[in-house]
Amino acid sequence: MSGDHTSSAVSARVRSVEAFLESRGLLDDGEIDRRIDEFLAGGSPVNGARIAARAWVDPGFAERLLADANSAIRELGLTMAGGLQEQRLKVVANTVDEHNVVVCTLCSCYPIALLGPSPGWYKSEAYRSRVVRDPRGVLREFGVELPDRTRISVWDASAESRYMVVPRRPAGTEDLPEEQLAGLVTRKGLIGTAVV
């Protein structure tokens, strides 16, 4: 389990492998940092918020998003293909009847392109081990009280797909333009640990 890693030993090993690859001419100086920067460039919860706001105002987009998220987000100029290969994106939408929440129990899989780097709690063993067993209790600790009749669906992102939640549109926002709606969407809302 990744929680057992001692980061100092791992980073020492990574440094020596990196130095070895550079000495053999297989890596340019600083290439790994540059690739990481490229991967993270543009990754921000602002992207996820734009997707959620568009889904709120455009039911056709919402339908395409839930059916094939990778294709739908290209309509907003976004992509899951920024890494070595395109990652499959699965988007789920919260409703009165169902609340979705995302976790990666085995490590910390997360849609970086749409949400930026993940928050510390998302990678914590406490969140990863508890939210699958007792999501209602964990959500309560995040300040989310759901009615008993709202079913909770936990998604364990422990393989190849990445997941994002479209939160419920807040009441009283019928007249707000899409840009302002996007401003209401939080990172936690897009993971499912907050309502907006």
């Binding site: 209602r136 079913r151 669906s153 393989a159």
Partner: peptide, 25 residues
């Protein structure tokens, strides 16, 4: 193929009224 597989929490943990969907080969 990798599949989204949905489990009832009660079948995994003996308690809970939620579901857990796991991605499995």
């Amino acid at each position: 193929p990798v599949w989204h597989v949905r489990f009832a929490a009660a079948d995994l943990f003996g308690a809970g009224d939620h579901t857990v969907t796991v991605e499995l080969w």
